[in-house]
């Protein structure tokens, strides 16, 4: 269980499947079935074409570290320094997250390092998709 204090997401009808997925240990993305392109954050239509012809699928959970900042001031739920990161998923979309199982330093957090999703419960309702260094680089 993550330390208390983090901002807690409140799912909407359009995003409920994503949060149900993380709770069940799955990272669910959506795909535009006309173009085959994955997208995030969730919405019931394609941001590429406007088509409602979309489907939900389970992502591999593999990603690379795309960019980040390391925050040095205390924020509820976090112990500084902590990185606020953006990862690029293997399927293409990017998402904000935190990197766990890794020193929160510029030396340890190397852009493009391979990562793997790690599901961390925030409470009984919400599980956040965080990322840790992939085994092959550990």
């Amino acid at each position: 269980m993550l330390a208390p204090g983090r901002a807690k997401p409140k799912p909407t009808p359009e995003t409920r499947h994503f949060w149900d997925g993380t709770k069940g240990g799955k990272l669910l993305l959506q795909r535009c079935d006309d173009t085959g392109r994955a997208y995030f954050p969730p919405r019931p239509f394609s941001p590429y074409t406007g088509s409602r012809n979309v489907s939900v699928f389970e992502a591999s959970g593999r990603a690379k570290l795309y960019s980040y900042v390391i925050h040095n001031r205390p924020v509820p739920g976090f112990t500084p320094p902590y990185a606020i990161a953006v990862v690029e998923l293997e399927e293409g979309p990017r998402m904000m997250t935190n990197i766990v199982g890794c020193e929160q330093t510029p030396e340890a957090l190397v852009l493009d390092m391979p990562l793997q999703v790690a599901f961390e419960p925030l409470d009984e309702e919400i599980t956040l998709p965080l990322f840790r260094p992939a085994k092959e680089s550990a």
């Binding site: 901002a7 997401p9 954050p41 925050h71 904000m96 997250t97 956040l128």
Partner: peptide, 21 residues
């Protein structure tokens, strides 16, 4: 609120520089 705030951003100094690296 769902897909950024849970990861600890705290105002513009933690968000605007996200792309900088």
């Amino acid at each position: 609120g769902q897909f950024e705030m849970p990861y600890g951003p705290f105002g513009p100094p933690t968000l605007f520089p996200i792309p900088v690296l």
